[in-house]
Design a protein around this nucleic acid. Structure first.
Lengths: 145, 145
DNA sequence: TATTGTTATACTCTATAACTATA
DNA sequence: TATAGTTATAGAGTATAACAATA
């Protein structure tokens, strides 16, 4: 990859938005039937990274509304990947925590679901992968997490 | 941004997927009410870039099924941003083309909708923007367009 | 009164299956 | 028979509004 001229923020915004949207769409299309939907999977990874959290905190973290997170968490409970724990200090709140099956699902799902993207990335040069690794961090920083 | 060790394709896949998904979700959240939905807007930009196309070609290009593209195109027709043109050689086909309003909408929408992302990008270093510019191209290449 | 989480409901975007018209 | 586009229908994910329980 070479890009001679510096890119203005405005022009870059359009390019980046299109690129990110296309990748996300393609990933959704490549995803196997057995995989958890992305929004469920990222909740597992959030719990894995930050530890047990309330549904409200998860909603804030993932940028969705509380009712949406309620549905996501309930789906994960039905799968047995998380459990809800009552909070004795504040009985309005509950804590969502990973189950052992949830931890295992993270490991297995990552292995399965990234197969296509891994293959694509493997065909790139180390330099391009380095670029994308840096970009991944930038994307997360931009998105405010 | 610095990233000392080379990143394996498998690890990078997970990082990139999360980063791209978070940005897309954030963009959706930041988008103004007046903006066209992304899937409609990208059709306008495709027509702007490649010229008039059939709905089927647009569906292939954007990675969606024909019925989905039918709905997207119909929404754009109702907005007056594209028009359908009969094909006399093959009466099964139609051609979708931009209207002058459609061309204007691209210009205006880009200015409006990328404001937030442009602002975020403006706070990055020129080096980071360069990284993201290269990454944008890589994302599109990976997504197969 | 304010906050946490949930339920009820609806909207958007997507898909598959079946249909129409044409090749 | 096959193809291009559409219609009918359903599923997934999201939202807002209203509600219950608790602080």
């Amino acid at each position: 990859m070479s890009q001679a001229r510096p890119t203005s923020p405005g022009t870059l915004a359009g390019e980046l938005r299109v690129g990110a949207n296309r990748l996300v769409r393609k990933l959704r299309h490549q995803r196997g039937q057995a995989d958890l939907p992305e929004h469920q999977f990222v909740v597992l990874t959030a719990l894995n990274k930050f530890g047990p959290m309330t549904p409200g905190a998860l909603a804030d973290l993932e940028g969705v509304r509380p009712p949406s997170m309620t549905r996501t968490v309930n789906a994960l409970v039905e799968h047995g990947f998380v459990s809800k724990l009552a909070n004795d200090q504040d009985k309005r709140q509950i804590t969502v925590q990973l189950t052992p099956q949830g931890r295992n699902e993270i490991k297995e799902t990552r292995r399965r679901r990234d197969a296509w993207l891994t293959k694509q990335l493997g065909s790139l040069s180390p330099e391009d992968r380095q670029t994308l690794a840096q970009a991944s961090e930038l994307l997360k920083r931009i998105a405010g997490h």
